[in-house]
Design a protein around this nucleic acid. Structure first.
Lengths: 223, 223
DNA sequence: GCAAAAGTGTTAGGTATACACCCATGC
DNA sequence: GCATGGGTGTATACCTAACACTTTTGC
């Protein structure tokens, strides 16, 4: 594969990937510290890096997450391409942003020197245009929650209906009726009863469910 | 603005823009002939071109559509970024694809040497990865039709309810009940009666409506 | 037995669907 | 007066939303 003619190769192409995880009542996002004087001093930013000439954008995302965050095997989807001329004040960098989602256990056990999960309400004034990327990400997440099975990627393999309901409540910032939520979600026929129950809880153990399909599915109904 | 360091500038960044318009019962798309031996011989392809160092992707789209197709002032939205390494067999070119929508009169009056509107069922075996871009475009269009006011950009400023219904029927490839469609669309409170009616038609003249908002709005209900 | 979360049904109001005939206009 | 598409209402089935108490478990 030849390179493009020099005159067209003015920009670098990057990927940036906010990785989200939900623990308890809080949404977390993976960030690392960005220190690039003079413009970006001790700010948080998502993991990101340059796309290589042999890679697709998605391959670059996987490589960057593994190299810089030791994260792999997660749900990824392309979010949007950010191309504002001054989005990186140092150079022209066009960024293809992706969203990553991980289940709670990955957030809880995460231990790396360079990156960590922070509650999103503690993220403001991020490096580059990452404030905007965060905003677009959350809008996308909220939207897809309503008409797809994307919630599965924020949950453990098996989970209780209350946990699933919490995903909706936190991300949509709303309170749902337990009985109605259960009726609706079970009627969608996307879950299966694992036959198991919670163990070691102090209250009545809840039935554990899992998604019938491990892929993102579109729903007919809106939750 | 400095250029990115040379080692990162391996690829060219392009935009590609299928522009759609609906006339009668057919969806049309703007294409031009691509002749780039040895890989692309006399194929159709969407309008596209390289992003310049001073431009955002959207600015490049506007410039390219105007320069190569003499089209401006249309609805545009970013579709997806296509980055397969071999998507352009000649060089590494990453493309940020957009969708454009124009009203029927722009399709009907379109006359340019280099580009023309073709019915989409006549488009196959397009240049580059444009077959895939077309597929993704149509999926997006169909999806957004259901929960946004995107239909407005495929219609004249004022239109009949039957014309609006036809947009849904053609793009979703379905037949809708006239009475139910009218009830539903009027209940959404997104249209206003212009007070005018069709003229010069051989049947009872239909009331002309327009959208209250000229921007893309999200709907609560699904059509 | 108490604390904590799980689990479960009914009713009323609203929405979606199915369906057929008269109306206004031009020729 | 006829051909053409415009415009309208109702009844039924379904879905949605509101609402509170009993069950199971660990301690």
């Amino acid at each position: 594969m030849k390179k493009a003619p020099e005159k067209f190769r003015f920009a670098a192409m990057a990927v940036d990937v906010p990785v989200f995880g939900l623990v308890g009542e809080k949404l977390y996002c993976l960030v690392s510290t960005v220190n690039r004087p003079p413009h970006y001093l001790n700010k948080f930013g998502f993991l990101g890096g340059m796309i290589k000439s042999s890679e697709t954008a998605e391959e670059a995302v996987c490589r960057v997450l593994f190299e810089k965050g030791n994260i792999k095997d997660l749900y990824l989807e392309q979010l949007y391409t950010f191309s504002a001329v001054e989005r990186d004040k140092r150079n022209r960098v066009v960024s293809v942003a992706y969203i990553g989602l991980v289940p709670p256990e990955k957030v809880l056990t995460y231990k790396q020197d360079e990156a960590s999960f922070k509650p999103i309400d503690e993220l403001s004034s991020l490096a580059y245009d990452h404030d905007e990327i965060l905003k677009v990400s959350l809008t996308r997440l909220r939207g897809k929650l309503s008409y797809t099975t994307i919630a599965q990627f924020l949950l453990p393999k098996s989970f209780t209906l209350t946990e699933l309901q919490t995903v909706y409540e936190i991300l949509k910032n709303t309170k749902l009726d337990k009985r109605n939520f259960r009726k609706k979600i079970l009627a969608l026929d996307i879950l299966k009863d694992t036959g198991k129950s919670q163990e070691g809880v102090q209250n009545r153990p809840a039935t554990l469910y899992s998604f019938k399909s491990k892929k993102l599915e579109e729903l007919n109904l809106v939750i």
